[in-house]
Simulated assay, not measured.
Amino acid sequence: MGSLVTRVRTTMALFAHRRARTMLDGQYGSAFRGRSLDFDDLRAYIPGDDVRDIDWKATARVGAPLVTRYEALRRQNVLLVADTGRNMSALARGGGPKKEIALLALGVIGWLAQRHGDRVALVAGDAASSQSVAPRSGEAHLERLLRAFDGAAGPGSGPSDLTAQLDHAVRTVRARGLMFVVADEAAFDERDAALVRRLAVQHEILWLTVRDAELAGAGAPGRARDVADGGLLLSLLARAPEVEEDYRRLMAERTAARAGALRRLGIAEVHADTPEDVIPALFRLLERHRRAR
């Protein structure tokens, strides 16, 4: 198996030209709330940097925009939170595996973090168990995190349970930082909202939702199965179109409930249906987070 970090970098090169990658770096660098008083150095302005960090005197001296960089920006903790249950082996709305979209999203944020010298940690698991990987920096560590997710997520894992991962993060993560949650369209109930509310006191939270495949396009009647329990999905729908309508209404209500809860907590959310969606979605996510601060 090749390097997963290399796969992430290659995918970024395919879907984002040089300027876009630079802007994504800048957006990430502006994602954290607050600043340390410990001055580090000056560097060239990157589109997406917070204009409040521009050193106007230094800019006037050299004739090009410079931003102040603080020591704290190099020592942040980034916590990746993801479900590795059976739901992640199902198809996303774009037709490919949800796992591949989640892996790329985690990899991009992790790659940006390690480029900035930040430490990256992981909380992932299913209903049966959760695993934590302590924060460290560097590409070798990021590779370890991505392999931990890749190896755990699949049809052989336990039932999905994002609530368990949020609860695990509440109980075990002590250091403040940026939390990046990758989840599918599982129900978001009052307990999830309470856990996220507690986490939001300690962390800045970004949320990416990998949307489920449309049932009508999931396969031939009588052949598509639910990854959670192996049950047939479409034979009933073929005979009763109203069931599909009820399902769509349920999913719309679920989406609205999750979006509303996250919005009330001030948490930016975007969705991705294909690997090609990931880079643009992360642009939007980081920009929304920056503007909401």
Rank of each mutant, 00 (worst) to 15 (best):
S235A: 06
R211H: 05
L262K: 14
A257M: 04
R225H: 03
D212N: 14
A218M: 12
V201M: 13
R288L: 15
R248V: 14
G217W: 00
S235K: 01
G260W: 07
D212T: 11
V243L: 15
A281D: 01
G231C: 03
T274Y: 06
G231A: 08
H203K: 11
V270T: 15
V243Y: 12
P275G: 03
A268T: 11
P241G: 00
P221T: 02
E244L: 15
A216Y: 03
E269S: 08
A252Y: 13
D246G: 15
L232A: 03
P275F: 04
E276C: 06
L232V: 00
L208K: 11
A256R: 14
A220S: 02
S235E: 04
E287R: 14
V201R: 14
Y247T: 10
G230M: 04
D212S: 08
A224D: 15
L234M: 06
A257F: 11
R211L: 08
P221W: 01
E253H: 13
G222F: 07
G266F: 09
A213E: 14
D246P: 13
R264E: 09
E276R: 05
E276L: 12
G222V: 01
I267T: 09
V227F: 03
A220F: 00
P221Y: 06
L282M: 06
F283E: 12
R264P: 02
A268F: 08
W207P: 12
A261V: 07
L232W: 08
V201I: 11
Q202C: 01
M251H: 14
A259M: 10
L262C: 01
L265E: 08
P275N: 02
G260L: 00
A281K: 02
A256L: 07
G219K: 08
T255I: 09
T274A: 08
A216C: 10
A256H: 09
A228T: 07
A281N: 00
G217R: 04
A224V: 03
